[in-house]
């Protein structure tokens, strides 16, 4: 996994978020990217594409696509912020759907409530054109260390 660590550190050193997204095939497929805003927060974007529609008659984004987007956001947030030696592994993920997702770009922000040695608790919030209009929130736990690395470090 050292190759992975090198890739992540190189991407962070260059400040180029896209390099991180390029590493994960499923993030590329969904159309995810992110950037660091003036306040130093990471803002994630799920670019609108017709393949992400889940209800063609409304139309609305697929709940699974929104959920997966938030899961990606939490993982990228952790990768970008901490000295990760492995890809954070999702333990559980809980999504609240507040409004149907409109057929347009969606944005997300994460908050790492607690980050311990082995596990992190992350909250995610997703909105669209109106920053105040949250369409979904999520909360998840992520494992940060591999079982074998517990003995080596």
């Amino acid at each position: 996994m050292n190759e992975f660590r090198d890739e992540v550190l190189a991407a962070r050193a260059s400040g180029d978020c896209r390099r991180l997204v390029e590493l994960i095939p499923y993030a590329r497929m969904l159309g995810i990217d992110f950037h660091e805003n003036a306040a130093g927060e990471l803002v994630f974007r799920l670019a609108y594409q017709p393949e992400n529609i889940g209800n063609p008659s409304l139309p609305a984004l697929h709940g699974g696509a929104v959920g997966a987007f938030m899961e990606h956001a939490a993982i990228f947030e952790l990768l970008w912020r901490l000295e990760a030696s492995m890809l954070p592994r999702v333990v559980d993920f809980s999504i609240d759907y507040l409004r149907p997702g409109q057929p347009e770009d969606a944005f997300a922000r994460c908050r790492v409530w607690r980050q311990g040695q082995r596990v992190a608790n992350v909250a995610v919030e997703t909105w669209q054109s109106g920053r105040e209009t949250t369409i979904a929130t999520a909360r998840g736990h992520f494992l940060l260390s591999a079982p074998e690395s517990a003995t080596t470090s």
Binding site: I24, P25, A65, G67, A68, L87, V90, F93
Partner: peptide, 24 residues
Amino acid sequence: RDELVGNPWRGTLHGGVVTTLIDQ
């Protein structure tokens, strides 16, 4: 499918794929 992979070093599917499957 390769494009659904979340961990390219292990080749495992992303958790979000399972989320979408379970959601739908």
